[in-house]
């Protein structure tokens, strides 16, 4: 096999917003072709991780290799060359509100290629067909439901047939049917286009159905790196709290505070 197995390699990365550390000496390897889910508490650095892979954020220490290139050290043009092979689905789709569905999906072709108008039309309709929304081509984003917008954004993200797809909370705010549709699309596209998918999500049920591997972050590090079956069987209190949605456990319900009674009597 000529291609390297590891498509993304994160080595000892540190990242902080101001004084608040987010990632601390985090290391993670993602293999070509797999669907990996990143889970963890809100504000735990999951989205930050996607930012680092896409080169939108620069770590204060450590290396982020994507296809053997160290992302933080790339020049702008090299970074843009790399990003043409990375697709990203943003939390709420991030469709361009002033463009129609068709033009949204056509956008990467118009910006990155010299294809003829006929060719672009054919390709766009193919991508829209893949997410089942060919009929909505002429609608504006404001006319779409949340689930449809997410699917259009997915079609837009895969226009240039990326080798890596990054999904930032793809299921948030969707009804269960839409969650199922998006989940199946992610799996199907990953297989059909030979992509590698990194999914940041809270939705454990859908994740366990979808992912090859689940990585749980805690305190800026990889807490565990397990298969869906191992997660289901795990007795670890932290993982159980996640899997069963318990309000209190290793992740405390209460934000750190002074003694309750003392606080009430203080005034």
């Amino acid at each position: 096999m000529s291609e390297r197995q590891d498509i993304i390699r994160i080595e000892n990365v540190r990242f902080a917003y101001g004084e608040r550390p987010i990632l601390d000496e985090l290391s993670l390897t993602i293999r070509r072709g797999e669907i990996i889910a990143i889970m963890g508490a809100s504000g735990g650095g999951k989205t930050t991780l996607l930012g680092l892979i896409g080169g939108r954020l620069i770590p204060s220490a450590g290396k982020v290799f994507v296809e053997e290139q160290n992302v933080p050290s790339l020049s702008k043009s090299a970074l843009y060359a790399l990003r043409r092979r990375i697709g990203m689905l943003f939390q709420f789709g991030a469709l361009f509100t002033d463009l129609s569905v068709f033009e949204n999906v056509a956008f990467p072709y118009r910006e990155q290629t010299d294809l003829s108008e006929d060719m672009i039309r054919t390709l766009v309709l193919m991508k829209l067909e893949a997410v089942g929304l060919r009929g909505a081509a002429q609608l504006m984003p404001s006319e779409l439901s949340g689930g449809m917008a997410r699917r259009v954004a997915l079609a837009r993200a895969i226009t240039l047939d990326p080798s890596i797809m990054l999904y930032d909370e793809p299921f948030t705010g969707l009804d269960p049917i839409s969650v199922g549709i998006i989940g199946r699309l992610i799996k199907r596209l990953n297989a059909a286009l030979g992509m590698t998918s990194v999914i940041v999500t809270h939705d454990l049920n859908e994740t366990l159905r979808l992912a090859d591997r689940v990585v749980v972050l805690s305190a800026g590090k990889v807490y565990c790196d397990l298969s869906p079956d191992e997660i289901r069987a795990s007795t670890d209190p932290f993982i159980r709290q996640f899997a069963d949605g318990l309000p209190d456990g290793p992740v405390p319900f209460h934000y750190p505070a002074n003694d309750y009674v003392g606080d009430l009597l203080a005034s």
């Binding site: 896409g54 990003r83 943003f90 991030a94 469709l95 509100t97 837009r156």
Partner: peptide, 13 residues
Amino acid sequence: TDQLAAMDMMAVD
């Protein structure tokens, strides 16, 4: 609404 970020990720400045 992340439109600028999405554009940036599509390698469009």
